[in-house]
Structures are given as C-alpha cells and as structure tokens.
C-alpha cells in the first residue's frame, strides 16, 4: 500500500493504492500537509486503486479537508468504488466532500 503523488497543472493528485487505514493514514496526512506547506492549494485524491478505508482513514480525509480549507485551498475526491460509496453514505461524508465519478471530471471541476 502506498501513495503516489504527481501534478496535473495546478492540482496535486494523490493515488491511494491498496487501503487507507490505521496503519498508513499518517503517511498520507503528512504527504499532503507537506505539499500544503510548500504552497500547493488544490488537491485531488483518487481512489481508483483503493480496496478499502476504515474510520481512521475517513478521519484523516476530514482533517485534511479542514486544514486545506483553512489555507484557502480545495480537496476533492474521485473514483470511489461501490463499497467506498456506501461507507461515505453511511457516515454522511458524501455531504462533506465533493466527489467525482472520474479523475477527469474531478480535474475539470476545480
């Protein structure tokens, strides 16, 4: 499991490979906060290669969303599989995040 980051214009894209859970959530948080510290403001997290997320992974997304907004930035999500959509719906986090069906739509939405 790992996190791959790259730039698409002004947008920092993060691919979550495998899972986002208690054992690796801090790694994602630190990577995104480092980019925020460097001055990046637009972030897209792509879950097309993600199997599952637990409550601590969801919590990190909430925390990052707050920190990015506080700096005048934006965080968007894309490519949730059916299980992840259910998880976001159960926790009502689908109302907190802007979630796109595809990476392209998410990139176009900034």
């Amino acid at each position: 499991m790992s996190f791959q980051m790259h730039r698409e214009g002004e947008i920092t894209v993060v691919d979550v490979e495998g899972q986002l859970i208690v054992g690796n959530r801090q790694e994602l948080k630190q990577k995104v906060l480092d980019e925020l510290e460097r001055g990046e403001r637009k972030f897209l997290i792509d879950f097309s290669q993600t199997g599952y997320i637990d409550s601590s992974g969801l919590g990190v997304l909430v925390s990052l969303s707050k920190k990015i907004r506080e700096q005048g930035g934006e965080l968007r999500l894309a490519n949730l599989n059916d299980d992840l959509k259910t998880l976001f719906e159960l926790t009502k986090l689908d109302t907190l995040f802007q979630i796109a069906e595809t990476r392209e739509r998410a990139l176009d939405s900034f």
């Binding site: 637990d54 409550s55 919590g59 909430v62 925390s63 998880l87 159960l90 926790t91 009502k92 907190l96």
Partner: peptide, 22 residues
C-alpha cells in the same frame, strides 16, 4: 454520533458507529 453537524467534522468517533452499521 458522527452524523451530527459537529460529529461530521470530527476526525475520530466513527469506529463503533461503523461496526454497528455493518
């Protein structure tokens, strides 16, 4: 309760909720 307006913005507090829902 992670579904309240305050709970929604918390980083923690979803573990037992998810266990019970699932």
């Amino acid at each position: 309760d992670p579904l309240t307006p305050e709970g929604l913005l918390r980083e923690d507090g979803r573990g037992i909720f998810l266990m019970r829902r699932l």
